[in-house]
Design a protein around this nucleic acid. Sequence first.
DNA 1: ATGGACCTTCCCACCATGGGAGAGTCAAGC
DNA 2: GCTTGACTCTCCCATGGTGGGAAGGTCCAT
Lengths: 131, 131
Amino acid sequence: MEMIGKAAKESGVSVKMIRHYESLGLLKGVPRTASNYRVYGENEVHTLRFIKRARNLGFSIEDIRALLSLWQDKRRPSAAVKKIAGAHMAALEQRIAEMQSMLTTLRHLSHSCHGDQRPDCPILDDLARPH
Amino acid sequence: MEMIGKAAKESGVSVKMIRHYESLGLLKGVPRTASNYRVYGENEVHTLRFIKRARNLGFSIEDIRALLSLWQDKRRPSAAVKKIAGAHMAALEQRIAEMQSMLTTLRHLSHSCHGDQRPDCPILDDLARPH
DNA sequence: ATGGACCTTCCCACCATGGGAGAGTCAAGC
DNA sequence: GCTTGACTCTCCCATGGTGGGAAGGTCCAT
């Protein structure tokens, strides 16, 4: 009889988040003891690790919901999985590109800022640019 | 007499967010008409554009709060500005590195997934890895 | 039986943004 | 003057993912 704390340790998902995922319907039908404690078996811990790994790869909860149901469907077409992964990769690429563009601008600005005791600061000048 | 809608258009900050920034103390002492409408002048619009630009560069509200006060302090040391920018750049770099690491893994997995009608899928296999 | 380590539910917070309700205001056109 | 539409006001709620903490129940070892 495995309680939530043990499942948390084994899966790497915090107790808080295990309950949260359950409330979101990612873990269904978790049984309870007579005193209302959640009980986890191998399957649940396996699912939690799946979720953990997917979160580590940046998948959203909705993506994970879809991935879990494909995982459980032994007749899924692998194309369906690849499509989700592809969309996520595209989103990551876009976000990275945005951040890199910020970084490029910041590096230019920072490079041209003395960073000393004097008040002159191209960084502030840029932020305050009338444009 | 410039109402909030016009200030929004001129600054690129939404009406909602202008009010929000004011509630956070980023815009102080915005005057009101007799009928309680906010009134904006050049200074306020300028500040809003500053905020907008800083947000576009990914600065947090707290960073912006500090940047605004440095902007208004004509005797600031530029080092203080550069320090904030540097910390932000480091955070961006770290986040980008994390996302790129996700992307690398995803690309490997996706590459080895047929993406057809068959159920075999290394992506799911990896997510479900016992590890 | 007491204490400590669990567990439960419920509410609140973050950050930045937006949606929408319900009410007031203002100007233009009739 | 009255209607209409475009503003504006304040409030509350939602997002997504995570955590904090309160108030109470349970279980086991001393």
